[in-house]
């Protein structure tokens, strides 16, 4: 690990300013992803701004009838929050399907959104990776790509966004709230928060340097059966091969987003009208234009079957 200086500010404005004025600075919250990457020298910040003293750790009702989740609410606490369990079950389920108990105790709402890909070539510093070292190439294109993206990727990068929580937040139409060093605030719809790689895969999100996430807001609850189905190589503590976050009525109508298939939570709203017709029609539209590799083409069939299982569950 490279050495770094450390500070622990007490206000969001101070924290944002500290990272904005130093291009080599990073925020640290739970640290469960950042420190892992620093040990491998994939991340080498020269300055860490510890945001754990900022508060931002409560869940409050919004005037619109939704909830505002503080950036530092831990994954364990968000999953267990009674209003989340009752009205936003898909979010509770997604959180509980991710990581281990120890990690969920540390991981935060904002940090979880910012976790980086688990592409094996991103982690292996001996390999070419445009996300880790821009311009170095992509070893995954001709490598083992079983876990990687089938849609939304580019010639420069076929990594997936690895998380579960953000997939549920995408189907819930959540909004990310931020503050910058000048005190300016921004509301970013979840759909626009993570970006597709294009020719700049090193940039995961639309945040600017020094822009601090303060909260994620959820609109008022959507009725229906809340489902998060995650298919993975073992029963617990593994990343999704494919996941489905869905809110479905008895007739199958509703909303659905997919995880494990793309560089961001993948949702095509226009395809949702076909949900009552069954999974095949929906996934055909959601994955139109997919470019799977030989290794990961199975994800297309798996996504259809996982959605079919969710529809069966909702209709039961």
């Amino acid at each position: 690990m490279k050495s770094f200086t450390y500070e622990r500010p007490t206000t969001p404005a101070e924290a944002a300013a500290a990272v904005a004025r130093n291009p080599q600075a990073k925020f640290i919250a739970g640290g469960t992803n950042l420190l892992d990457l620093m040990k491998l020298q994939i991340e080498t910040p020269a300055h860490l701004v510890d945001v754990n003293g900022l508060g931002l750790d409560t869940v409050e009702p919004t005037p619109e009838g939704g909830l505002r989740v503080g950036a530092l609410v831990r994954n364990t606490d968000l999953a267990a929050e009674p209003r989340i369990r009752k009205d936003y079950g898909v979010l509770s389920r997604a959180l509980l399907a991710g990581a281990s108990g120890q990690l969920r105790n540390k991981a935060t709402t904002a940090g979880n959104l910012l976790q980086r890909t688990r592409c094996p070539y991103f982690y292996d510093t001996a390999q070419a990776c445009n996300k880790r070292r821009p311009g170095s190439g992509c070893s995954a294109l001709d490598g083992v790509s079983r876990s990687l993206a089938v849609i939304g990727a580019s010639e420069a990068c076929i990594a997936t966004y690895p998380g579960d929580m953000a997939v549920a937040m995408r189907v819930l139409d959540a909004t990310v709230e931020t503050v910058d060093a000048a005190g300016g605030t921004r509301r970013i719809p979840m759909a626009d928060f993570h970006r597709l790689p294009g020719d700049r895969p090193e940039v995961d999100t639309t945040l600017k340097q020094g822009e601090l996430i303060t909260a994620v807001t959820l609109p008022k609850p959507v009725a229906g059966t809340h489902i998060y189905r995650k298919v993975r190589d073992r029963a617990s503590y593994a990343y999704a091969l494919v996941s489905v976050a869905a809110i479905l009525g008895k007739d199958g109508s509703g909303h659905v987003a997919f995880g494990g298939v793309a560089p961001k939570p993948w949702r095509i709203e226009a395809a949702e009208a076909d949900l009552p017709k069954g999974a095949k029609a929906v996934t055909a539209a959601v994955f139109a234009g997919a470019k799977p590799t030989e290794d990961n083409a199975f994800k297309l069939k798996l996504a259809e079957r996982t959605l079919a299982a969710a529809l069966t569950q909702a209709r039961a």
Binding site: Y6, I28, G30, G31, T32, L35, D36, K39, L48, T76, S100, G101, Q102, L103, N105, K106
Partner: peptide, 23 residues
């Protein structure tokens, strides 16, 4: 030393965490 095995688990402020993944 990467939060995958749990051998370093400690209880901090009443919660179990991976002590290898925190400073």
């Amino acid at each position: 030393d990467h939060g995958q095995c749990g051998a370093c688990t400690m209880i901090v402020d009443g919660r179990r965490i991976n002590s290898c993944l925190t400073l």
